[in-house]
Write a protein that binds this DNA or RNA. Sequence first.
DNA 1: TTCCGATGGCAAACATCTACGACGTGGCAC
DNA 2: GTGCCACGTCGTAGATGTTTGCCATCGGAA
Lengths: 338, 338
Amino acid sequence: MANIYDVARRAKVSVATVSAVINDSAYVSPLLRARVTKAVAELVYKPNLLARSLATQQSRTLGMIVPDISNPFWPAVVRGAEDRAHAAGYTLLISNSDDNPCKQELYLNLFLAKRVDGILLAKAPGPLTGDAGQQIASGKTCVVQMLRVDAKWKGDAVLLDDEDAAYEAVAHLLRLGYRRIGILSGPPNVQTAARRLAGYRRALRDSGVKPERALQYEGDFRLRSGTEGGLVLLKKKPEAVFVANYLMAVGFMMAVRQYRLRCPQDVALVTCDDHPWLDAFTPRLTTVNFPKYELGAEAARVLLARLGSRDRPPERVELRSALCVRESCGALLQEPVR
Amino acid sequence: MANIYDVARRAKVSVATVSAVINDSAYVSPLLRARVTKAVAELVYKPNLLARSLATQQSRTLGMIVPDISNPFWPAVVRGAEDRAHAAGYTLLISNSDDNPCKQELYLNLFLAKRVDGILLAKAPGPLTGDAGQQIASGKTCVVQMLRVDAKWKGDAVLLDDEDAAYEAVAHLLRLGYRRIGILSGPPNVQTAARRLAGYRRALRDSGVKPERALQYEGDFRLRSGTEGGLVLLKKKPEAVFVANYLMAVGFMMAVRQYRLRCPQDVALVTCDDHPWLDAFTPRLTTVNFPKYELGAEAARVLLARLGSRDRPPERVELRSALCVRESCGALLQEPVR
DNA sequence: TTCCGATGGCAAACATCTACGACGTGGCAC
DNA sequence: GTGCCACGTCGTAGATGTTTGCCATCGGAA
C-alpha cells in the first residue's frame, strides 16, 4: 500500500506538503494542492492511521467493556455509544468481561496498550485493580463508568435511577392492592442489583409493609436463576413479584408455567428493561423502561467531552426510567383495591 | 508512559535486548533477563501496541461489520466472533452498517486505514464498491463474508442453510395439514431473505401446492413491517404463515392480537431465530434455530486460519439449523391431517 | 594464537506529523 | 533604482515507539 513518500514523490513535493493537504493543516498553493490530490487518487493512498496515531499521540479509538453483549440489555447501549463515537470520528473496541474482574483487567490492559483515547466501562464487581486500575485512578486515562460505579470513583459516570425505578415498580404493585410482594434480585455485589433491592424495600416500608426475607430471592441476572428463583418464590405464594432484570423475568415466567399458574391472575409481575418484542406476547409484561440507547450515547458524549478538556469538573448523569404498564401487573384486569 | 528506551536505560541494556525479553524472540542471559524484567515492573512498562503494529505490519485487530447490533440476531454472532478472536490474541472493532452500502464503505475504508488484519463482514445489499471494494476483491485484505455473499465472491464465507431451513419450516406446516400457507419474507435484495423465500416455494411445490402471490408479503426484517405484513396477510385468511425473521414474527403477533385471532388455532406460525426467552411466553413460537454464536465463531476461525496462511483454498462453511417445535405451529394442539 | 559460537548493540525501517528553517518575491523606503 | 525586510510557501529533519538484520565483541576451546 502506498505511503506518504510515494505520494510526495509522484506529486513532486515534500511529505510535509502532502500532509498539509491531507489534514488541511497549512496553506498550500492551489497548484501543489491539485498535484497532491491527483497523486493521492492515482495511488489510492489511504493514510496509515496507526502511524498517524503514533505521531499525534491519539488513536481516535475508544474501548468499551460490557458484561455480555448477548445479554439483551447491552446491544442497545453499545449501539448508542457507537453512534455517538462514530459521529465524532472515533471507533469502538469492544470486549465482554462476563463480570469477571480478571477478564476485565486483561481487557483494560489491552486497551491501554493499544493506546485507546478513553474507555467506556460497565464495571465488574469489586474495585479496579492492577496497573490498569492505577492508571485509571490516576486520571491519566479517561474513563466513564456506566451503570455501576466505584464507591470512591471521583470521575465521570452515567447511571440509571435504579432505586427510584424499583421503587416505582413496587409502588405500582402496592397501589394495585398487592401486599405480599416478592423480589427476584440480582447479585448483591452488583450495584444496580443492590440499588433495585433498596428501592423495593423502601417502597414497601413507605407503605407500611414489612419486607419479608422469605420473599426475597437472590439471583444472578441470568435466565436460569430466574427459573430457580421463581420455583422457590412461588412456593411462598406471593401475590406479586418484582424481578430485577429481563432475563430473570423470562426464567420466572417459565417457573410460572411449570407450576401451571396464571400471570397476572395468580401472581402479578413487574420487571425491568423494556424490549420491542414485549408487546407481542401473552401476558404482556409490565416493566420499568431503562433508556438503554441513551445510556450508551450519554456515556460516549461525556467521554468525548472529557477528551476535549481534561480539566472540566467530573460529570455524573442519572438517566430516568419510565414505568410501562401492561398486563402482567394485573392493572388491566382488576380494579385498584383502594 | 514509559517507553522501551526508558526500560533499556534503567536495565542498562540495549532496546534490542528489552525487545528480545518481552517477545521472547532471542536468547538473553538470565542475568540481563532479570534486570530487564525488574525494570519493566518498576516502570510499569506496557509496550505501545500502535508502534509494534507499525513495525510488525500487523495490528492484531479485526474489523467486524454487522447490520445492527441492536437487532437481536446479531449480539450472539458478535459474541461468538469475539470469543474466538480474543482467544487468539485479537481485538474486535465493531460497526453497524444499517444495511446501508454507503455506511458500509465508510467503515470498510476506516478499517483499512486502521490497518486491521482482517474483516468479518455481513454485507449490505449490492456489490462491494469503491476503493475498499477493490482492495478486498484483490485479496490484499482478508475478508470472511458472513450470512450473505456476493454472487462472484471467491473468498471465504460462512453461511446458514437458509433455503433448507425455510424448506423444513414450511414442510413441517405442510405435514401438519396446512395448505394455505403464507410467507412474510425479507427484502429480496438481502440474500438470506431471497433464499428463505426460495425454500418456502420449493417446499410448497414439492407437496403439490401452488404458491400464491397473494399469500406472500415482502417485509424489511423490522418489527413494524411484521405488523404491517401481518395486517395485510391475515385478511387473506391463511391457515399458517412462515415469518422469515424473529423481529417480524413479533410484529406479526401484534397483528394477530389486533385482529383478536388466536395462534395457533386461527393461524399457525413458524419463524426463524431461536432465543432463550421464547420458552417463556404464550404462545411459544416454533422456530428454525440458527446457530448464531457458532456463525460468529466459525467466521472468526476461518478468518484467523486465512491470516495464518494466505494461499490455502477458500473455505465455504454452511451451518445447519434445527427446527424447534413449540406451540405456535399447532403441532401440540391438533393431530396431523394425513 | 586463532576461530567459532554465543550475546548484545547499533541503526534502519515502519508511516506519519510538525517545528523550524530557508528561499523567493514583492513592496516600500531611502 | 537599489537594497532590505517581511511574509508567504515549502522542505528538511526529528520525534513518535517498536522490531530486527547485521555486525561487533568477548570468551572459551582447539
